[in-house]
Nucleic acid binder design. Structure first.
Length: 886
RNA sequence: GCGCGCCUAGCUCAGUUGGUUAGAGCAUCUCGUUUACACCGAGAGGGUCAGGGGUUCGAAUCCCUUGGCGCGCACCA
């Protein structure tokens, strides 16, 4: 076999696409083809929104998923990533509408109509979908493309309808009149979790409705006071309790005079503000709750869906924007001497995270999921199911507990559940799953149907119509782990691959998504959606800012891949990250990772090109020298450590161990030693193939490319993960460390004494009982420190004209050609003595402490004693050196 | 208001249940003889682990506290 020529530098761009194609064509992304594997390991890919192209955050997530799945595949599991995309209802429609407005279509819904607008959105979605899928391939993610899903495809829509039907039948989904969050710009509801709170300067106005009204109230929204129907006070408040139950008629300029009832409510804080709350049932969720407890007070909506004042607000206000109405109402209060106080303040207002406008609280009939109602056949509410899954386990089954990494998100999740209110699932946008409920125009029957029914099932009338609204996008993504596996049918996939094993997500969608998946799965499947959740932080730029369009600091992962290669990008995202914490990303990191990838390439290049035959070495070769023993020993440790860290989802830690072993131990030491000792092909290939395997999940392309060059005849992707051998030769490991240290010390002496690297020098060592070790390893020391003469003595004196050091009981003397600078050398040795003395003193104090000796474990004490004696020995020899300098 | 995270070398970050003279990468300085690699090699400098207090034989690590940065939730009459 002819020698294989490898290029000097690794060309990621030139090989990656072909490698991915090879993997894909092999069929092994599909676990059904992993015939030897038994136990499944499944990750549902969080489906990216079809709102555009992928960003670095997606590259990060893909790296996390793929490192885990490739590891599991090599560990012999039926490993699968189920890929997909999310139609992302509001987000996508908002994006397309924005684009259309930029094209001059000022009101897309009105101007285009439902069908045409949906067509435009579909085109946009399909386009970004195909871009997204090619990007995922570029990132090297080993997805099972045969199971590709889309939240809005037929199969997933079926699942959505089925869950709706079940919940509807169980009375968990209901249509209710409530105060909801309304985006005027988006003309749709938003759920509580879709709000982004921002601080806003505001004025708190304290006023009375009329001169004869006995209680003053305060508000930041005076215009809503045109719809007040009550004032709430604390029943224990002596100032006001006499008024409870009384009604006052006041004329504030609304369509009709308002009847204000004074009601009691324990929630009212006596000491806050005036101690009384003006109740506006129509425009405050809190006030609406009071209204529900005291329906007799009535409810008057004064703001409409268009964000303008309604007819109820009166002729003076009708049609005005809220801000204009506010000004006008405050002016009226002022004019009538009803305004008591104006104070500047800051409060937070909810804005729609998609449409970006401040939401209005409006009363409306909407669809909700009741999270508190006991489910008939389960005896627990959805809230309780959501709690159970992360505490005692689903149905109290300890094997069905969802674990969260890092642990602290556990408490955050539970806290969120405690504050959870009924989930508003209906949206007035068009892009999404239409609510599968029909209305009969004649008999008013309301009925569920997953097909287009021809008539009312009750009165057989054909005058029927479907609900206009669509479902919140999280309704469909909540079912993702099982809808992708074929549910509601009981498919083999569902039986084999669900619950899934691992889920990664950013903390920002913990509530949106994780909670909803748990809700949907425990309810519909009576199971958990996944076993382990890994929460990651957000990527930030070099200055710690979020990546965002408006800041213009975004980086396109594909550009980075073009420049540095996918492996470099992946490694840069995985190194130096901690679960749950944000991480900074910048090009220098990728550059460093690219350098490593190239280093690995060149390690391989050296090994392959210095051998006649590339090959795979099946079993651990025999170690012939100390260095051999050492590197094999180190390899076994790094196998164990890497495995252990990945098992803890500490990908960063695993990569650190591997990086250190590959670059320092293997390349800088062992490869150099191999040039001295020679005849190491077997071990070199053996170690190489093992680090390729260990690195594969992190940097799949370069490792596969090299592995194929070795002539394995099999894809690295499906090779077995290395297993550490148990024999640990600690003695040879320690001996090698001494040799390395001696070499380092000689190099240091050369450098300190300004000896040019090319110059050959002579060294004398007084080795004591290390004489055998040093004699055996003398060639390595000689070559790696460039010695012409290396004299090893059992005992002796410091040679004249030499500088020295002490390592592991061995005295090392570098002979200098000319006269040495005695003063400088004295200084150097003295400094070292001083450092050692300080060290010894610390140890002596410790070991002289009776309490330490009484309390510390024996092994710690033994260790400290050992440290002390070797330090004393060292200092003695250093002092000898010093005295012989004079 | 309640809660969470972070503060370790110039920068970005590791640091596992408390136990080597606290580590890495980048940057900096000095120097380039090698059977792969200058996307490289050899050597070096650089830290009161945010401040204070405590527990302990022993604290970067546990507790309290102060300060700074960031975040979540609630309130927002």
């Amino acid at each position: 076999m002819p020698k294989i020529e490898l290029s000097k530098a690794y060309d990621a761009k030139g090989v990656e696409d072909a490698i991915y194609q090879k993997w894909e064509e092999s069929g092994f992304f599909n676990p059904d083809n992993l015939v030897e594997a038994k136990e499944p390991f499944v990750i549902s890919m969080p489906p990216p929104n079809v709102t555009g192209i992928l960003h670095l955050g997606h590259a990060f997530e893909n790296s996390l998923m793929d490192v885990e799945i490739r590891y599991q595949r090599m560990k012999g599991r039926k490993a699968m990533i189920v890929p997909g995309t999310d139609h992302a209802a509001v987000a996508t429609q908002a994006r397309v509408e924005d684009n259309l407005r930029k094209e001059g279509i000022s009101n897309p819904r009105q101007d285009l109509g439902r069908e045409e607008l949906l067509k435009r959105i579909r085109e946009y979605a399909e386009n970004s979908k195909s871009v997204i899928l090619s990007q995922i391939r570029k990132m090297g993610t080993s997805c099972d493309w045969s199971r590709l899903a889309y939240t809005f495809d037929e199969k997933r829509s079926e699942a959505v309808n089925e869950i709706f039907k079940m919940m509807y039948a169980d009375g968990l989904i209901y249509k209710g009149y409530r105060v909801i969050n309304w985006s005027v710009k988006g003309q749709s509801t938003c759920s509580d979790d879709e709000l982004e709170y921002i601080d806003q300067k505001t004025v708190i106005y304290t006023f009375k409705y009329s001169n004869n009204f006995p209680i003053a109230i305060a508000t930041t929204r005076p215009e809503t006071k045109l719809g007040d129907t009550a004032v709430a006070v604390n029943p224990k408040d002596d100032r006001y309790k006499q008024y409870i139950g009384q009604k006052f008629v006041v004329d504030v300029g609304a369509k009709a005079p308002l009847t204000i009832t004074v009601i009691a409510d324990d929630e009212v804080d006596i000491n806050y503000g005036t101690g009384a709350v003006g109740v506006t049932p129509a425009h405050s969720p809190v006030d609406f709750e009071m209204y529900q407890k005291n329906k007799e007070i009535g409810i008057i909506p004064v703001i409409g869906k268009d964000g303008k004042m309604t007819e109820e607000a009166g002729v003076n206000y009708q049609g005005l924007d809220v801000l204009a109405a506010r000004e006008k109402f405050v002016a009226w209060l002022r004019k009538n001497n009803l305004l008591i106080k104006e104070e500047e303040s800051v409060h937070s207002v909810g804005t729609s995270d998609r449409f970006k406008d401040v939401v209005e609280a409006l009363p409306m009939e909407q669809w909700f999921i009741d999270v508190n109602k006991k489910i008939s056949n389960k005896g627990r509410s959805l809230k309780e199911l959501m709690r159970e899954a992360v505490t005692m386990g689903h149905n109290g089954d300890a094997s069905k507990v969802i674990s969260i990494t890092p642990d602290r998100f556990h408490a955050i999740y539970l806290h969120w559940i405690d504050n959870l209110r009924d989930w508003c699932i209906s949206r007035q946008i068009w892009w999404g799953h239409r609510i599968p409920v029909w209305y009969c125009d004649d008999c008013k029957e309301v009925f569920y149907s997953d097909v287009n029914p021809v008539m009312c099932p009750k009165c057989r009338s054909k005058n029927i119509h479907q609900d206009e609204d669509t479902l919140d996008t999280w309704f469909s993504s909540g079912a993702w782990t099982f809808s992708t596996l074929g549910w509601p049918e009981e498919t083999p996939d569902l039986l084999t691959y669900h619950p899934t094993n691992w889920m990664q997500m950013g903390y920002e969608i913990l509530f949106f998504w994780m909670a909803r998946m748990i809700l949907m799965t425990t309810y519909a499947l009576d199971d958990i959606p996944f076993k382990d959740v890994y929460i990651h932080g957000m990527l930030r730029d070099k200055d710690g800012r979020k990546f965002s369009k408006s800041l213009g600091n975004g980086l396109d992962p594909i550009d980075i891949i073009e420049k540095y290669g996918t492996d470099a990008l992946r490694l840069s995202l995985l190194r130096g990250t901690t679960p749950g914490n944000d991480m900074r990303f910048y090009e220098e990191k990728v550059e460093g990772a690219r350098n490593f990838v190239n280093k690995l390439w060149n390690i391989s290049r050296f090994i392959i090109q210095s051998s006649e035959n590339s090959r795979i070495v099946a079993t651990q070769p025999e170690a012939k020298t100390l260095a051999d023993k050492w590197i094999l020993n180190k390899l076994n440790s790094v196998i164990a450590l890497t495995t252990q860290e990945i098992d803890k989802y500490n990908f960063s830690g695993a990569s650190e161990y591997l990086y250190d072993f590959s670059w320092n131990d293997f390349a800088d030491w062992y490869l150099e030693i191999s040039k001295v000792e020679g005849n190491k092909e077997e071990i070199l290939f053996y170690v190489l193939q093992n680090i390729l395997k260990l690195w594969h999940p992190f940097i799949p392309f370069v490792t596969e490319e090299i592995y194929q060059t070795l002539g394995a005849g099999k894809l690295l992707m499906i090779e077995k993960w290395p297993v550490a051998s148990t024999s640990q030769d600690e003695a040879s490991r320690a001996e090698m460390e001494i040799i390395k240290e001696i070499i380092a010390v000689i190099r240091n002496l050369r450098s300190e004494n300004k000896i040019e690297p090319a110059k050959m020098v002579s060294v004398v060592v007084i080795a004591g009982d290390r004489i055998k070790l040093l004699t055996e390893q003398s060639e390595i020391i000689k070559k790696l420190t460039r010695l012409e003469k290396f004299t090893i003595l059992a005992d002796g004196q410091k040679p004249a004209n030499s500088v020295g050091a002490v390592v592991g009981g061995v005295q090392i003397y570098l002979e200098l050609a000319g006269l040495i600078d005695v003063e400088a050398e004295k200084k150097r040795v003295e400094k070292e003595i001083a450092e050692s003395e300080k060290y010894i003193k610390g140890l002596e104090v410790k070991l002289g402490n009776k309490e330490f000796l009484d309390n510390a474990p024996e092994e710690i004490i033994a260790k400290e004693n050992e440290k002390l004696s070797s330090a004393i020995e060292k200092i003695k020899k250093l002092k000898d050196q010093l005295s012989s300098l004079v």
